[in-house]
């Protein structure tokens, strides 16, 4: 029978809680890209995404003490990053400027292989209302369940479904019109 190697996460969490600088560097190397992606997709600008990475990782040694091991550490950390990004959106009212900022920033970015469809989707995402875009990103890009999205946003599962449905419909209309 194949032995599954023990997860390195508990040790890393313990070292983070103890405030070891090496542990933070290790956590950064392992998870920063995921946090950055969340920030970029939700906040819409690379500068905001960088700030998010900084906030999450500098706050991580303290926050890690609340990690109870009910999910993987990465999943927990991604939820923390998502909550932080949503808090930024709420507090700084980024959503009011989000569409314009997103438009400017995303147009600089080109993805790798098969770029045409992705660029269409990038463009289409720019046109979405913030409420719908957040749900779409959390569901389709970050892979959260309806229940998780509802919890993260403080809305009902039904509302989540409706927003996702509308996001998809508008994206489809945009892409078909294109």
């Amino acid at each position: 029978m194949t032995q599954i190697p023990p997860s390195p996460e508990p040790e890393l969490v313990a070292r983070l809680c103890a405030g070891e600088p090496d542990a933070l560097a290790q956590a950064y190397d392992r998870y920063a890209a995921a946090v950055y992606r969340i920030g970029y997709r939700l906040l819409g600008e690379t500068a905001d995404a960088e700030d998010l990475v900084q906030d999450v990782f500098t706050g991580l040694p303290r926050a890690a003490r609340t990690f109870e091991g009910r999910s993987s550490f990465e999943h927990w950390l991604r939820r923390v990053a998502t909550r932080t990004a949503l808090m930024v959106l709420r507090q700084q009212r980024v959503q009011r400027r989000g569409v314009q900022r997103l438009g400017r920033d995303m147009s600089r970015f080109r993805s790798g292989d098969g770029p045409a469809a992705r660029m269409d989707l990038e463009s289409a995402l720019r046109t979405l209302d913030e409420r719908f875009r957040i749900v779409f990103v959390l569901r389709e890009v970050e892979g959260y369940s309806y229940q998780e999205i509802a919890e993260l946003l403080g809305i009902g599962v039904g509302t989540t479904r409706v927003r996702l449905y509308r996001a998809r419909r508008r994206l489809r209309e945009y892409l078909e019109a294109d």
Binding site: P21, L24, A25, Y28, D29, A32, A33, Y36, R37, Y40, R41, T46, A49, E50, V53, Q54, F57, T58, F109, S111, G112, G114, R118, L121, E122, V141
Partner: peptide
């Protein structure tokens, strides 16, 4: 398959 831009090289040092 949507990707984000790569992490800026100086960010790690700034965070730490």
């Amino acid at each position: 398959t949507l990707e984000a831009p790569p992490l800026p090289p100086g960010l790690r040092q700034r965070v730490l």
